[in-house]
Design a protein around this nucleic acid. Structure first.
Length: 581
RNA sequence: GCACCCAUAGCUCAGCUGGAUAGAGCGCUGCCCUCCGAAGGCAGAGGCCGCAGGUUCGAAUCCUGCUGGGUGCGCCA
């Protein structure tokens, strides 16, 4: 249930009446007619722009249409009054009973309240993290992981059938580097002195892998050439790294539905098939690229390569799919991977990349557009950098100094709930400041705390009520007499609750889970405000002394706030707090 | 040189498929606990929405051009 769509349906119904009355011409397009909360609450509960949108096509004055529409709307029992304002806005006020029954409705539906069917069960694939299997996840990955997971949950809540997917880059040279690094640790486990050259990973997390390899294989690889061990260790090591990464993700509560291996594209004809598909569309040719202007590489020389005509699908230049020596570029398996996603029958694809892959967006969109004949939309969300702070001071990361911060470091220091919430209180395309101290601060300045506090307060009221022998189960609460929830402050809380379903749809449509976090902050603010009003106005307190029935109706409102907070936090992957400590 | 992202209060940031007098928090000023958690609340001051044009009933929002910051740019994935 969504009050805004209900009222919009009413507006449309009344517009049709006006058409029947001959006030408006037939055949008008209502697509742009919106019913929204007015920016200023003084204007009313809901506003529609119908008159302004329809004035031109109806060849009429906005205010005339608005007046006629207002008269029609005033007939509806739900509308207390409808008045024209400004250039032709129509402001509506709703009966208090609407807001009261909304509270009952929230309790009826529980955390399903706000779920939407805008997704219509469409299948959507969200690919995220996709870090190379060469080591543990770091902070940058954390943001992408949290964002992707929350977006997936949000889309699921909005009625999509979502698959979370991880693309394992286990086909390239970086896995060879990993294998060589593990080999060094393996030799080390055999007591040899080893040196880590530039082209190796010196990270200590490989010590254990080398040791395990020794335990399994003994000295079988010692003193052997790469041709003996490279491919085997590559496999062994990348499996180990994926175990590590899976555990990292699990520590944040993230579980992927699909892990797709790049390696599985090679030697199976999948890359060839994808390229063939493009070739059949006339989008593959042999050619020479222009050097990039202004930043000409020293060793630039013209080369003939196999190119994908990505410019025909919105890219700036055509992109190579084969190197001059005939081997695939990185782009080729990526095309094949997306071809696979397209052929798996998804209605839409979402890729989540780090900001450093921004240059990749156009060619990837071009590829999917070409592969699916523009039928499968691909949205690519970039997550910007995370800047770390400690006590307000920038926290420098350096791989060499061993001070690079991993996902595990973050989770261990602040916990998964805080890490997730903080990462989601910013738009994905804005850089994020993450201060290890500030995120644990207990004040209004810290949204995590503030929202959790609101939830904990409500739980506290429920506990208190139970101690006093008042029944506070949802079945009892929703049957309570809610008509005394009539004070402006109480109605305002209910109005905020009414926005939830609408917000879910907006956030899902724009692929912006941060909107959920901001909404929860606003809702928490309403709750805290009402709570404090109880200081001066005892009739607003949730616990009405000696009056169980009155208490139950007040608590019903508080409980419905807790339900929506829990639902919102659920989307963000955060556990609602029972109490603050 | 080109592409993408960002620019809103002193600071950190919201702002819905274009809507009315642009909103929060921090900081600043002043208030509110015999009362369900003051870990909170209320009020006040604080704005050329980077600059300049354009589109229209209407622009922080869309388009173009600038300025400043970030990211990236053919045999690295």
């Amino acid at each position: 249930m969504n009050l805004f769509t209900d009222i919009r349906a009413l507006v449309v119904e009344k517009l049709d009446d006006l058409v029947a009355d001959g006030v408006l011409p037939a055949g008008l397009d209502y697509a742009n007619v919106a019913v929204e909360p007015p920016r200023d609450a003084l204007h009313g509960d809901m506003a529609t722009n119908a008159a302004m949108v329809l004035a031109k096509p109806a060849k009429s004055k906005p205010r005339d249409i608005a007046e006629a529409l207002a008269a029609k709307l005033a007939d509806d029992p739900r509308i207390t009054n409808a008045e024209v304002a400004g250039p032709g806005f129509l402001n509506m006020r709703l009966e208090a009973s609407i807001w009261q029954s909304l509270v009952a409705n929230v309790l009826e539906q529980g955390t399903n309240y706000g779920q939407s069917n805008v997704g219509q069960g469409k299948r959507i694939n969200v690919e995220f993290v996709s870090a190379n299997p060469t080591g543990p996840l770091h902070v940058g990955h954390t943001r992408g992981a949290v964002f992707g997971d929350a977006l997936s949950s949000l889309l699921g809540y909005a009625g999509y059938d979502v698959d979370r997917e991880y693309y394992i880059n286990d086909g390239g040279a970086q896995v060879d580097v990993l294998a060589r690094s593990v080999y060094l640790r393996y030799l080390e486990a055999h007591g040899q002195e080893v040196a880590f050259e530039d082209e190796t990973y010196p990270g200590e997390y490989l010590i254990e892998v080398g040791q395990d390899l020794k335990d399994e294989k003994g000295d079988a690889y010692v003193g052997q050439s790469e041709s003996v061990w490279l491919s085997e260790i590559r496999e062994y090591a990348s499996d180990k790294m994926m175990d590590l990464i899976r555990a990292d993700l699990a520590s944040l509560g993230i579980k992927m539905d699909v892990f797709f291996s790049e390696k599985s594209l090679y030697g199976t004809g999948l890359i060839e098939a994808a390229l063939k598909s493009l070739e059949d569309k006339g989008l593959i040719y042999e050619g020479v690229l222009e050097p990039p202007k202004g930043k000409k590489p020293e060793d630039w020389e013209p080369r003939v390569q196999t190119l994908f005509k990505s410019t025909e699908h919105g890219d700036d230049v055509d992109r190579p799919v084969k190197k001059s020596d005939g081997t695939w570029t990185y782009f080729a398996p990526d095309i094949a991977y997306h071809y696979d996603k397209v052929t798996r029958g998804y209605d839409a694809l979402i890729d989540i990349f780090g900001a450093d892959h921004g240059g990749y967006v156009k060619r990837m969109k071009a590829a999917v557009s070409a592969l699916s004949d523009s039928k499968t939309p691909l949205d690519i969300k970039l997550t910007q950098l995370v800047k770390l702070y400690k006590n307000g001071e920038p926290f420098k990361m350096s791989k060499r100094a061993g001070t690079f911060v991993t996902l595990r470091d973050v989770v261990e220091q602040v916990g998964p709930d805080v890490a997730r919430f903080v990462m989601l209180t910013r738009k994905n395309d804005a850089t994020l400041d993450f201060d290890f101290d500030k995120v644990l601060e207990q004040s209004r300045d810290n949204p995590v705390f503030y929202v959790q506090y609101a939830h904990a307060r409500i739980r506290s009221v429920l506990r208190k009520a139970a101690e006093q022998g008042i029944a506070v189960d949802d079945a009892t609460l929703k049957a309570a007499d809610l008509s005394n929830l009539a004070h402006e402050s109480e109605i305002n809380v209910a109005k905020k609750l009414a926005e939830w379903p609408r917000l879910v749809e907006i956030a899902a449509r724009t692929h912006e889970p941060h909107r959920v976090a901001f909404y929860l902050y606003e809702l928490a603010s309403e709750l805290h405000g009402l709570w404090n009003k109880g200081n001066e106005l005892p009739e607003l307190r949730f616990l009405q002394e000696g009056n169980a029935a009155a208490s139950q109706s007040k608590i019903a409102l508080a409980r419905s706030v807790a339900v929506v907070i829990a639902a919102g936090l659920g989307i963000l992957g955060v556990t609602p707090a029972e109490e603050m400590r």
